Computed example of a mutant assay.
Amino acid sequence: MSLLVFGSAVVDVIFRLPQLPRPGETVLGEAGPPLPGGKGANQALAAARDGAAVRFAGCVGADAHGALLRATLQQAGVDTALLAQSDTPTALAAVCVDMAGRNQIAVSAGANMRARQANVPVAAGDTILLQMEVPPEENAALIARARAAGAQVILNLAPAAALPREALSALDLLVVNEHEAGWLGAALGCGAGAAALHAALGVTIAVTLGEAGAECHGAGLALHVPAFPVKVVDTVGAGDAWCGVLAAALDRGAPLPAAMRRANAGAALSCTKAGAGPAMPMAAETDALLAGQA
């Protein structure tokens, strides 16, 4: 079993605000220290903390932010041999979080746009996890190579962006949230539900629904997995926790319904802590929540 995450690494600066800014509005609040984030790095952290053997491939700058991200991944046991370094600055995100835990995020892509898949090894039996904060053409090329090699390929279409239809149809699993599902349904000319997206693309579709849980449709498969109620601090890393924990469980050979239930638990736990990378739960925390809800 081997899990490879190809994707973004971003340093987050989190602004705690009484309410999220409206267009043209300035809202005063408090900013915290730089924290490790980015959908790729977050998902790699979540998978490693859930017990997976994880390799991370991407690109950071030759700066303090890049060093922070590399060290954070290594401390979690992630293999960073495939994490390249560029003269382009490390990606940076401004994360605004209101009193209810809702968020708005602006990202400077930086070195993530230098991530390249050509030297990323793939083999039969690997699980490959991707997102959309690196060049789409690199994702499409890696999906094609991974499919040809016999790897299991999971794409989190976040943030929503275009990929060739043949790349989407080559996936084993496509993960979207409600907003991304709406965007994709409009692009494909179909509905936004998991069943409609599955019918359009012919691959298994998982749609995360926040406090309503998650639904999934695939060949002979239709299920809804409820969420775990928790006291929310912020939701910044919830989707990344979901994807990372899910990929770790699938890489261990868990059936999809069980993997989705574990992913729901991991995502719920991430909402009880501030930040993105630092909020990814440990396996023991997820085990305890699952045991309490058995």
Rank of each mutant, 00 (worst) to 15 (best):
M1N: 12
L4G: 01
G7E: 14
A9W: 09
V11G: 09
V11H: 14
V13K: 04
L17Q: 08
Q19R: 09
P21A: 03
P23Q: 03
V27I: 11
L28Y: 09
G29Q: 08
P33C: 12
L35V: 09
P36N: 01
G38C: 02
G38Y: 09
K39S: 01
K39V: 07
G40H: 05
A41W: 01
A41Y: 02
N42Y: 05
A47S: 08
D50A: 14
A52P: 06
F56Y: 14
A57C: 02
A57R: 04
A57K: 05
V60G: 00
A62K: 11
A62I: 04
A64Q: 13
H65S: 13
A67C: 00
T72G: 06
Q74R: 08
Q74M: 03
L83N: 05
A91D: 02
A93G: 03
V97N: 06
D98E: 10
G101C: 05
G101E: 09
G101P: 09
R102M: 07
I105H: 12
A109K: 07
A111C: 07
M113G: 07
M113Q: 13
M113F: 12
R114I: 00
A118C: 04
V122Y: 10
Q131H: 10
E133G: 07
V134N: 03
E137M: 11
E138W: 00
A140N: 05
A140V: 02
L142R: 06
A146H: 12
R147L: 10
A148F: 04
A149F: 15
A151Y: 08
Q152R: 15
V153D: 11
L155T: 02
L155V: 03
N156Q: 09
L157C: 02
P164S: 10
R165L: 07
E166A: 15
A167L: 08
L168E: 15
L171T: 08
V176G: 00
E178Q: 13
G182W: 01
L188R: 07
G189Y: 06
L201H: 13
L201R: 10
V203G: 04
V203P: 08
T204V: 10
T208R: 06
G210W: 04
E211C: 07
E211I: 13
E211R: 13
E211S: 15
G213W: 11
G213S: 06
G213R: 08
E215L: 05
C216I: 12
H217Y: 07
G218A: 02
A219I: 03
G220F: 08
L221A: 03
L223G: 01
H224P: 02
H224Y: 08
H224K: 12
V225D: 00
P229I: 10
K231T: 14
V232H: 01
V233Y: 03
V233P: 01
G237Y: 01
A238V: 11
A238N: 07
D240E: 01
D240Q: 01
A241S: 12
C243L: 14
L246A: 14
A248C: 01
L250P: 02
R252K: 15
R252A: 15
P257A: 02
A259I: 02
M260L: 15
R262H: 06
A265E: 03
A265W: 13
K273R: 12
K273M: 02
A274R: 14
G277D: 02
A279V: 08
M282D: 10
A284E: 15
A284Y: 14
E285D: 12
T286M: 07
L289R: 10
Q293K: 04
